[in-house]
């Protein structure tokens, strides 16, 4: 299990990195935390000719709040996100999500941007960011563009990124007032990819009715798609256990297309989607009403 040889570049600046990508993008892979890429290389499932190591671009490691928006740099390590007070305060859904990502040794090395760019539907962050309506910043020598999460995740391990583009940061709104959240997943062992996971936020309106519900799944399809049918069923309704149950059933039946594999059948995943969505919504309702944190 030794990786095949590759050519190694370690740019010291963003401009240098973008120039390298412009030149080698087609045959190069960006190396950030490498916690998915290097295992794949050790199995020789991935044999990139060129690696562009962005770990020296320390300017891409940051967590900031600007005008009600959270900005997280692509090179920010998971463990920094997990421990950051701003995240706990302004992005409690993300804070709840982070400990589910693998193990501490992986979180110390793995990066926020790397996890988004890898676009694994079994990973937690794509779902958590989709639910938060995140926008993803892509830079190249051609310029900068921001892509909304649903447009960014186009397929299994596939994104809207062009070969010469680098994911530099992710931005999303801080959680509005009167908004409840929940991230819950079922994994065989702590730190494993989830058999199924749910990220949900529920914002309540003036009369205590659901104004904006958002649900997104982990391991339930090729991309972390929003559960639009379930969301429609929730919006405008008064939150209740019955509503959570009904919406969960809609989500599991209409909004997902889960895979079957050795760990779980599609049918079991649908079942889990029902149960976990119900749990997630009930928690989010309670949090939105300020009953619990």
């Amino acid at each position: 299990m030794k990786p095949a040889p590759f050519k190694y570049f370690r740019p010291e600046s963003l401009d240098e990195a973008l120039a390298l990508l412009a030149k080698h993008g087609d045959e190069a892979k960006v190396l950030a935390g490498g916690q998915s890429l290097i295992p794949a290389m050790n199995f020789r499932l991935a044999q990139p000719a060129i690696l562009i190591d962005i770990n020296r671009l320390s300017a891409l490691s940051f967590i900031e709040e600007k005008r009600g928006q959270m900005h997280i740099g692509a090179l920010t390590r998971h463990s920094m996100v997990e421990r950051h007070p701003l995240v706990a305060q302004k992005a409690p859904l993300l804070a709840e999500t982070m400990p589910n990502i693998a193990h501490v040794q992986i979180r110390n090395r793995g990066t926020f941007g790397g996890s988004i760019a890898h676009a694994d539907p079994a990973a937690e962050l794509p779902a958590a960011m989709t639910v938060r309506g995140a926008r993803i910043c892509l830079r190249s020598t051609r310029g900068e563009r921001w892509v909304d999460a649903p447009q960014f995740f186009v397929g299994l391990l596939t994104t809207a990124m062009e070969p010469d583009e680098l994911l530099t940061e992710v931005a999303f709104d801080e959680l509005p007032k009167k908004t409840g959240w929940c991230f819950v997943e079922v994994a065989r062992r702590h730190g494993d990819y989830a058999l199924l996971g749910v990220a949900a936020t529920v914002r309540l309106g003036m009369m205590g009715k659901v104004k904006d519900a958002r649900i997104c799944f982990v391991s339930a399809g090729e991309t972390p798609a929003l559960a639009t049918n379930a969301q429609d069923a929730l919006n405008g309704q008064a939150p209740s256990a019955e509503l959570a149950k009904a919406a969960a059933q809609i989500a599991a039946a209409q909004d997902i297309d889960p895979p079957s594999d050795i760990h779980a059948s599609a049918r079991f995943r649908r079942h889990l989607a029902t149960k976990l969505t119900e749990r997630a919504l009930n928690t989010a309702f309670a949090r939105a009403r300020g009953e619990t944190r």
């Binding site: 290097i38 040794q105 992986i106 110390n108 090395r109």
Partner: peptide
């Protein structure tokens, strides 16, 4: 690595 636990089998020495 700089005081934090990491898995040395999935980091290249050059890094």
């Amino acid at each position: 690595l700089d005081g934090e636990s990491v898995r040395s089998c999935i980091i290249f020495a050059v890094q």
